[in-house]
């Protein structure tokens, strides 16, 4: 019986120390109040995240990143943020117990559709990935290329150069 009590005590201590070492992060995400009410392609949206260390130990090597998922019906897919955002991650930060990290994530809206944005975070030591609540938004289509501007240029300039060539040929022919 005494042995069992010692074993239980040891197990409890090990479990307790394991829990104490695990990172404990709280992630909050909110859309910036200045965001356009009806976002369209080409607009900028900003999202503010707060990552708080709610554990008892400092978190080293914190990595937080933004993810964007398209949820348009029939086009569900994770998005490559290449053209959407130049600010894709925060790395190498240390968070003291009770400390928090506020980050502003600018996103440029490249394509129409429905999207969800989420911030994820993990640290160097723990294998857990913490995620924030998601924010969903709709990007309205904006025709960005106007044929009334393109057609005169795209057809006019080659025609002008072609006309110049014809004129020179005509002039040479008549001069000869």
């Amino acid at each position: 019986m005494k042995h069992l009590q010692v074993l239980l005590l040891l197990a409890g201590l090990l479990l307790g120390s394991g829990l104490a070492q695990a990172a404990n992060l709280d992630l909050q995400l909110a859309a910036d109040p200045k965001n356009p009410s009806s976002p369209t392609m080409g607009d900028w949206m900003h999202f503010n995240s707060v990552i708080s260390n709610t554990g008892q130990q400092a978190i080293d090597g914190l990595v937080a990143w933004i993810s964007l998922v398209e949820v348009t019906a029939g086009h569900e897919q994770p998005m490559d943020l290449e053209d959407w955002s130049a600010h894709k991650a925060v790395t190498g930060t240390t968070l003291a117990p009770g400390g928090s990290l506020q980050t502003n994530w600018p996103v440029r809206l490249i394509k129409q559709g429905d999207y969800r944005v989420v911030i994820s975070a993990t640290d160097r030591n723990d294998k857990t990935v913490f995620t924030s609540p998601t924010i969903q938004f709709h990007v309205a289509q904006k025709p960005v290329v106007e044929s009334r501007r393109i057609l005169p240029v795209a057809l006019g300039l080659p025609l002008f150069i072609g006309g110049l060539m014809g004129y020179r040929r005509y002039k040479q022919h008549h001069a000869g």
């Binding site: 053209d83 960005v144 044929s147």
Partner: peptide, 13 residues
């Protein structure tokens, strides 16, 4: 750009 729908929807920049 104006004859292809996908390309015409690309962002201006």
């Amino acid at each position: 750009l104006i004859s292809n729908k996908e390309l015409s929807l690309l962002d201006n920049a």
